[in-house]
Design a protein around this nucleic acid. Structure first.
Lengths: 232, 232
DNA sequence: ACTCTGACGATTGTCGACAACTTTCTGTTT
DNA sequence: AAACAGAAAGTTGTCGACAATCGTCAGAGT
């Protein structure tokens, strides 16, 4: 975790890039969030305000606010007078998260079918996945997969659901990062998606919901015990 | 909004009550939340930190943190360098909230049936509702109704869902407070619930989900245009 | 009359310091 | 050796002050 250069200092003349200047709390929260969901800050890691402030070269105020954002995201929990820490993930919680994922995705599918929304954006995501498989690019595949599912929710045209999804997917991201990945067949993951799009295009509600639920359960059941368990 | 007496001052000898001492941000957030969902702070109300700090006789720090809690609750939105304000409620948003409510309650019903959980606590809530109707006590009826639906979610044994529900119901509470209430038949509201319990006891999945969805829609459709609309 | 520039007011953003609380360690007593 | 009292360290909680930013309004120039 490197230094944040944009401290409160006089602007230099050569400095004409920063049109959008986000508050420190947002920058810090983004960094910490990224570190948590990528697994670099594993569950149980204690986040001490003074230490973070010194490390990032800012005062404690924006640190506190950033950590509070993460707390409300559900990534951090508070242990009074001891420090906040990255929330440990229990098997139960992982199960619940994937349960919610299934609930949300099935609901999105139903809304899409109800409203006869065009699923062309989903087909694009599938194409991106296929390209990633051809290139054997794991990162690109993960990105395309995330885009597919977020697009699915977005197409359901329900802003609140999308908000909840973004939060949920953040934690799924974290879970995936903590898993022993690698031995999974890239083509297998990608191959799950086009049938879903076809079922949506065909208006086959039963098949579409069945496929999306099956896909979610396949992800949830993958190596369910590999989540790192932390104290308490 | 009265004064908060528990400022940072030396404890007096007579002061031996305060076993539970919550941080100011939590106390303040609770107060503000209550004021918002009860409609005393209607949508669009600007929350100025300095004004609140002076009013509550605390510094701006805990005010900021309290408002941030409400922001993450979805009750307050931020307008940079201009002040935060109570989030305006659009008809669209109200519709989405009730859509989520239906989604959650149907999911809870299905989980309860899947796991064959005892629904005795729900029957108790029904009894409380009947008593409230007999006494013509509107407040008690609302409380019992809230208890019924929270119990339904709780019985589904899904901690994350319950968390989301609590947040969702907060906003529903606000919506109801902003509506023109009164002409609604108390007995009618109460009467909707026992059939749901009976269907759950009978294990009749189709009937239980139908009834709970119908109940939610009845609540959503009640006077949908009476929500106070505020600028932007 | 219109437009642009500059200053002013209001509000949030950030900082450093101090207070309060909990936990832990250490020394003493039994 | 065990247990209790007290001190000490570490962390969060709160405060007051200053900096940065945005919107507005007055005034000068065209």
């Amino acid at each position: 975790m490197a230094d944040i250069s944009a401290r409160l200092e006089p602007r230099e003349a050569s400095d004409l890039a920063p049109i959008h200047n986000q508050p420190l709390r947002v920058q810090i929260a983004s960094r910490l969030r990224d570190a948590i969901i990528s697994g670099r800050l594993p569950p149980g890691t204690v986040l001490v305000e003074t230490a973070l402030a010194e490390q990032l070269n800012v005062s404690r105020a924006p640190i506190r606010e950033a950590v509070q954002i993460l707390e409300n995201d559900g990534l951090v929990e508070s242990v009074a007078y001891k420090g906040k820490r990255v929330k440990p993930l229990t098997a139960r919680e992982v199960e619940e998260i994937y349960g919610l994922r299934e609930l949300f995705e099935v609901a999105a599918v139903e809304r899409i079918l109800d409203r006869q929304v065009s699923v062309a954006p989903l087909a694009e995501c599938c194409a991106a996945m296929e390209a990633a498989v051809r290139d054997d690019d794991y990162e690109a595949l993960v990105a395309a997969d995330e885009a597919f599912h977020r697009t699915l929710i977005r197409l359901s045209d329900h802003a609140l659901l999308l908000t909840l999804w973004n939060n949920l997917y953040m934690r799924i991201h974290q879970i995936m990062a903590l898993r022993n990945r690698g031995e999974r067949n890239l083509a297998e993951i990608a191959g799950n998606h086009p049938p879903i799009v076809r079922a949506l295009e065909a208006g086959d509600r039963a098949e579409a919901t069945r496929l999306i639920a099956q896909h979610t359960r396949a992800l949830a059941d993958f190596d369910p015990e590999s989540i790192a368990q932390v104290s308490q």
